[in-house]
Design a protein around this nucleic acid. Sequence first.
DNA 1: GCTCATGTTCCCCT
DNA 2: CAGGGGAACATGAG
Length: 257
Amino acid sequence: MPELVQVEGWRRLAARRARGRRVRALRVLEPRVLRNVGARTLARSLRGARLGPPRRHGKWLLLPAGQGLLALHFGMSGSLSWSADEREERYDRLLLVLEDGCLHYGSRRKLGGLWWIPRGGDLEEATGALGPDASTLSAARLRALLGARRGALKPALMDQALVAGLGNELVDEILWRARLRPTRAVAELSRSELDALHGSLRAVLRAALPLGDLPREGRWLQAVRRERAPRCPRCGAALRRDRVGGRTSLWCPREQR
DNA sequence: GCTCATGTTCCCCT
DNA sequence: CAGGGGAACATGAG
């Protein structure tokens, strides 16, 4: 379930459970999740390595390990969990066995993966170009980024090279709160609409980051996302589901302009 | 059986 | 070159 807010939750998990520990062993259950390194090489690099403070940029979790950096991406169905023992869970693809516990990298669809960046290596080779993390964006920065952009609003916000961390569900939530429709042309947004967009971005992240997830009840679009005939949690209008930028978008035709 | 899924990449158009 | 559409990737859930 990985967008910025979930990855931030896993970053906190790693900070609490893994930071400062040494790696006892690496268990690669599914070799395909290793994207730029083989299991042998990675095991040699990691064994005995001490884990540093985890960082996050957009949807990437960056875990310093010994002399290098482990970069984790979760695709559409990945997750990170911790257990005191080494028992494998259903969709585990890789285990990092630590001195006092075990980190589990799991994923059902295997769309994500792990990259190893040795000392002096180039992180951007793994992550591709990333814009500033969405959680750090000022209103002025957001205006500047969108000012250099044409086309529809939603694909712009989901472009990781423009702003890092926002995915389909976060963007739908932010646009719904800002009352802007996903297909709105970026170029025609007024100053007050841009301010509303930034305010909604901040509000959504402020509420969701501590949870490590989007709230799924109350006045949140997310609360009705999985219903067959969802209605707007604010005005009750029937919501629309359209493809925008290749993704299913949920939005309120009455309120979002 | 069928459709859809919180992501990214690559190819082809405009 | 930038942006948009579509397919591919892999596999489970409804």
